[in-house]
Nucleic acid binder design. Structure first.
Lengths: 241, 241
DNA sequence: CGAGTACTTGACGGGCGTCAAATGATGTGG
DNA sequence: CCACATCATTTGACGCCCGTCAAGTACTCG
């Protein structure tokens, strides 16, 4: 039998995820793997950079989970977006702009500098992957707005878990219908605009309805296609109903 | 007395706003004014483009108000962001990406093509203004998430009006503490994740508390500095409290 | 002048916040 | 290896903010 050329299984989740956006050339993969020697580790809850500071050089999240947060003067905290392996940190439209959010690891994380393939400079496949990653990020942010503005607690949680599942799947971090989720219920509450108590009750309901299993930081979504159907956006495009 | 060189008062709000981001050279202003001959008018509520469609060429909003919206399959509608004079429409990280939102005029609007000064290609002041505009847009989107996730109806409304005031001010569209706001209470509700009924009650309370006057589409914020103080973000940057 | 749209107000109910406490998990030091 | 502190999860009681339903009042426009 002839040998079949396969994706190396050793490829990191971060690279898997970027390659899912735009098929990477060997040189791109090499550039990414090269940069990994400059990887740096950050502890959970120790802010990587904070609101008001200049945004540091663009980096890629190699492993672990992080988030962008915004905190009001009285301490209320809102998680703006999740940052998962393969996501970009600190790549913005304007280099010298100051951060209007903080980036905080939710677990121990490893970051490394993004190879210089900024979108627009050339049209290599890595630049394309970066551009698509940012475009996707915008989309998730907008979905998050809809989630917070127009969904019930029950829907918010289900919708968020679906998003996380999809994102982790593109990094090869899911197994069947399940994945590891290192978020406390308090963190989920800060994402979803709820309290930890109500997140807990909502999880109970989801469990009771057979939608998911959630134990020891592992989520199993029992019927992903059914769930996904519930949240499909209308695509009519004929003005307000 | 010697003549003093002044900004031409005839400058459009859109150009005023872009110039506030990065001081524009005469040639940039000329390019913008040139493009105005290709301006096109859109009626209120007639979608400019819709979710799922490819994003058309980048344009600038010259006059009127528009918004990005997302509609769930059961008709619930969320306004993702406001688009005001001088804002960019359809400029994204990835040209070929499809829209995950619709753009709808809230009033009659006039758009015209953005001169080809895409961020990154050159570092002219117009490209800088565009990049800063997009960065600002991201910031507003993130503030919107915090608003929806962590603020009461009363705070959401006050905070939104403050944002609108600031944005209109940079376009020269405010007069003292007041501005024209062509939004119905239903539209405000769709922005703030509330119902029109509750928006109405909340406005009553704001009026009663002497925070604002709002009649015949004109808003007057009575104490802007006091209001702004309430919503200042904490800037400690020393981890979670 | 009638129809449509936006604003206003009331009554009522439910989803979610708040407060409090119990139980379980995790980790740390002696 | 166990005592103990800390943190996360769970559950209950209670109340308020905001949604829902409904009706009535302005305002605009053909």
């Amino acid at each position: 039998m002839p040998m079949i050329r396969m994706q190396p299984v050793s490829r990191s989740p971060a690279i898997t995820r970027l390659a899912s956006l735009s098929p990477l050339r060997d040189e791109d993969v090499a550039a990414l793997e090269n940069a990994e020697c400059k990887a740096r580790k950050f502890q959970a809850r120790r802010e990587i950079f904070s609101e008001g500071e200049p945004i540091p050089e663009p980096r890629i999240l190699l492993s672990g989970w992080a988030c962008r947060t915004h905190t009001l003067s009285d301490g209320r905290r809102q998680i703006i977006s999740l940052i998962l392996p393969g996501d970009l940190i600190g790549m913005s439209w304007h280099r010298s702009a100051r951060a209007t959010y903080s980036v905080t690891p939710l677990t121990e994380v490893v970051l490394y500098p993004a190879p210089p393939a900024y979108p627009g400079t050339n049209q290599g496949s890595l630049a394309e992957a970066f551009a698509l990653s940012k475009a996707q990020e915008d989309t998730y942010l907008m979905r998050h707005v809809t989630r917070l503005g127009r969904m019930s607690a029950y829907e918010r949680l289900a919708d968020l878990l679906l998003e996380i599942f999809g994102r982790l799947a593109s990094a090869g971090l899911t197994h069947g219908n399940s994945f590891q989720m290192p978020l406390t219920q308090e963190t989920l509450a800060d994402m979803l605009g709820l309290t930890n108590v109500h997140v807990n009750r909502t999880i109970q309901t989801l469990r009771h309805n057979g939608v998911l299993t959630l134990e020891s930081r592992r989520v199993d979504l029992h019927d992903i296609t059914a769930l996904a159907g519930v949240f499909n956006a209308r695509r009519t495009g004929v003005g307000t109903p």
